[in-house]
Design a protein around this nucleic acid. Structure first.
Lengths: 335, 335
DNA sequence: ATGAAAGCGCTAACAA
DNA sequence: TTGTTAGCGCTTTCAT
């Protein structure tokens, strides 16, 4: 039989008789034949979708991957992950260079123009970008609402001295539009709005090794330390909780995270956090990508809704006498 | 200029003059040219190495990935991850079908003969297999020593009623040689050796959703519940700790995990666990794979050494008076 | 040192 | 319905 016949059988293409199909399938089974992805990709599509996953906030990525897998279930597409931890250009290109039919990336820092170029070569969905591109789709959380909810919660509890612990300067660069920049801005705005502008304190996580532990420890060692900390994401929040525990003040400093990572619900952690539908974000991204592959060209954007999950890591401040703090102490006695 | 020239420049091959190289490089930069991985793979190698990562014990996989990345640093190889959660045959094949030059997989359950076949097509390194293959390399922890160390620690503390919480039956099938089967066997052997054969109790984690929480809760609800639990890996241990905390007996049931996941060191978790050099395992696997690609054909095996990390999740049993429990109490006073 | 050309395994358009 | 054939973009051998 001819290769064309085999090709048609494999692709379920039109124009092949039942008995031919049977013969081909028998041969495939007997020879253990497997089509070469490389050759396929060269001629058409590889049926692989790439997902670039930055090391930062690794736990949140688990949700994204789960969602993408769910969305791809039953489709002919396979998910391929590429871990990145530096500037993501290289990793993204290594995916785009013919390995995959389309890609999802989480790279708030790469240049928008560069992405538009990339998107002309291969369909792209970007996660966590608040820009308004023309050539690619975006899936993003409502960071304004999420950060505001977190801050409002702490303020409602009666906290005044609230610090923010976030990623390095690069990730929050002033007009970059990254989720972390927006969370930081909202933190500042809420503090100002609540009349605590004088206590605005931002700490940043250091080089990967020590995480946000040192930065938090420094915050706590001050004469007038924060009574609450808003962490830019759950992984940082974990470091913050660790630093608080190690400083011997477990339970005395409220901590809010972001992402509602699986660990946040663990009773030994029990972290108040902002849920932004990570799984749904992953699923939407994969779905959008497939739509692009099927021919859609107009831009789409999915904005995930956020909701605050209140757990025991946030309590009213230990009252030292001021109005709201006093109210807080009462509440804390009820626990 | 000819494509041959370009090809040579890209591959740093022999036979190209400096001025030609310069011209080519200028053209590459100007056109933003990127070689197609697919075409390359078709003709020779893709310079991609695949790593199949099962969803189970996800946190341990982080170490493996980190190690593999470290080993690949500075080589021309890129790491590509393929998430799997069911029977891994499909995922492995989807990698092997021309996408990658070689692959690392963590699939204790796939058939050895099938793997030998696979290894004839593409270089393979398997993680966590205690078999003695001819065509592929293995990287494995010393599960006998690791499990024994964990059990010995609990017995030394004075525990008699020790339960084991592990994965589903499939993963511990009697003569399968999986790490979890060996840990289970060692658990049983140590219990018998210590004269506690009558208390051997094995619980298993249910379908992914509830984890090992239910199984643990059932254990604890018994009239004569265990005073210590040996969990087959840290992710299960986390579920166990959660169930213990939720049963209101935080700190009363000792828990040992396995893998020394990053979370085990968190002060709010502080889990005693068996370290098996996960990062080193990943690095060794990647290194072995590269050696294979460079022509090695004889089999290699790397056995990671284990070491017990004692933390506060294990304490002597709350003494109800028996000999060993009393001894344990003394030790605990030293803490 | 350079270029021409064959062919990797597949798909798609066309011929039989 | 089937088989033939022309490339996809690269590497590699062989002439020049």
């Amino acid at each position: 039989m001819s290769r064309a016949a085999v090709s048609k059988v494999i692709r379920n293409a039109y124009g092949v008789s039942p008995q031919m199909r049977e013969r081909v399938e028998a041969a495939i089974a007997k020879l253990g034949y497997r089509p070469s992805v490389a050759a396929r990709a060269l001629r058409g599509s590889s049926y692989r979708l790439g997902l670039e996953i930055p090391h930062v906030s690794a736990r949140f990525m688990g949700q994204i991957v789960d969602g993408a897998k769910r969305a791809l279930w039953g489709t002919p597409y396979q998910l391929v992950l590429a871990p990145a931890d530096g500037p993501e250009y290289g990793t993204i290109e290594s995916l785009a260079d013919g390995l995959v039919d389309g890609l999802i990336a989480v790279s708030p820092l790469v240049d928008a123009a560069w992405l538009e170029d990339l998107a002309r070569r291969v369909p792209v969905v970007m996660l966590g970008r608040h820009d308004s591109p023309t050539g690619y789709d975006t899936v993003v959380g409502d960071d304004v609402a999420g950060a505001r909810a977190a801050m409002q919660h702490l303020l409602d509890l009666g906290h005044c001295r609230i610090a923010h612990v976030t990623e390095g300067e690069a990730v929050t660069a002033p007009r970059s539009g990254t989720p972390h920049q927006i969370r930081l801005d909202m933190y500042r705005a809420c503090m100002v709005e609540a009349g605590h502008a004088d206590f605005v304190q931002v700490a940043r996580r250091g080089p990967a090794s020590d995480g946000a532990g040192r930065a938090t420890a420094d915050l706590l060692r001050q004469p007038n330390p924060p009574t609450a900390i808003f962490a830019a994401h759950d992984d940082i929040a974990l470091d913050v909780l660790a630093a608080v525990a190690e400083s011997g003040r477990r339970g005395e400093v409220s901590v809010v995270g972001y992402d509602n990572t699986d660990l946040a619900a663990h009773p030994l952690i029990d972290l108040t956090t902002v849920d932004q539908e990570g799984v749904e974000m992953g699923a939407q991204a994969a779905t959008m990508l497939i739509e692009r592959l099927q021919g859609r060209t107009e831009r789409r954007e999915y904005v995930a809704t956020t909701s605050l999950r209140i757990r025991s890591s946030t309590t009213p401040p230990r009252g030292t006498g001021s109005g709201p703090a006093r109210a807080g102490s009462l509440k804390s006695a009820e626990r």
